[in-house]
Design a protein around this nucleic acid. Structure first.
Lengths: 124, 124
DNA sequence: GTCGTTGCAAAGCGTTTGCAGCCTA
DNA sequence: TAGGCTGCAAACGCTTTGCAACGAC
């Protein structure tokens, strides 16, 4: 990653302006609004490069395409709404998960995903 | 799902004999040992049907093909080893995650994945 | 005998890659 | 000007689907 192009700037801007994980498709559509004609391959290439850099992190839900969000932000987890299929960020954590580890296992990180209905879907 | 074929029996047997989530490929290879000539499409079709039935559940790790395990077993979580890439089952849970929910959100289920080194990889 | 199931091969679909031209530094 | 970056289209790999034959009930 050595040069700043308007395509890369647009892709980064899209992520910086979002408070929830985005799919490649969403990024492509949003960034195309900033840089018309933007190719999908460019989005894939940049997302991959940014993820390798740690600037982005991957968020995966079973049976769905991977989403990406800014890495290095405050430690947080995710909420997956079964109604609108959106993914929200949650604040806080529970800690003390080492108690679940079998003997000899070492924990480097953990990932927690809650599933249910977001406020607007629960209201229906 | 109405008939019992030797292919379906083999696929179910493979899952019943495993204590960790398996990928489609692993299932295909193991089941082919029981039913030579087993087609991949058959494995996909049966896994999908069994998952719809709830007999199987999906386990997903970022950037990897989905794995499947018997559903309806004791509530448990997973450990993903960064050394051998295997996925292990963990016993126990932490509970009280509702405290992380924003107002108005309803939780239906949760999923926790720990990442690190399994005992044999940690020993190296 | 019926019709769900299977194996094969073709089709799909999201993602990656090769390449010639573009454009940042 | 050099070589990283882009857009396009072809290639890829995994998963799904169409179809004729098979076999469980």
């Amino acid at each position: 990653m050595q040069r700043n192009t308007k395509q890369r700037e647009a892709i980064k801007a899209v992520f910086s302006g979002s408070d929830r994980p985005l799919s490649v498709n969403e990024v492509h559509e949003l960034a195309t609004g900033l840089v018309p004609g933007l190719g999908v391959a460019t989005v894939y290439r940049n997302i991959k490069a940014l993820a390798d850099d740690g600037w982005l992190e991957v968020v995966v839900m079973p049976g769905e395409a991977p989403r990406y969000e800014r890495g290095g932000t405050d430690h947080h987890h995710h909420f997956h709404c079964t109604g609108c299929e959106r993914v929200f960020n949650l604040e806080g954590c529970m800690g003390r998960m080492e108690s679940l580890l079998p003997k000899g296992f070492l924990m480097e990180s953990h990932d927690l995903t809650l599933t249910g209905r977001c406020d607007s879907c629960a209201a229906k």
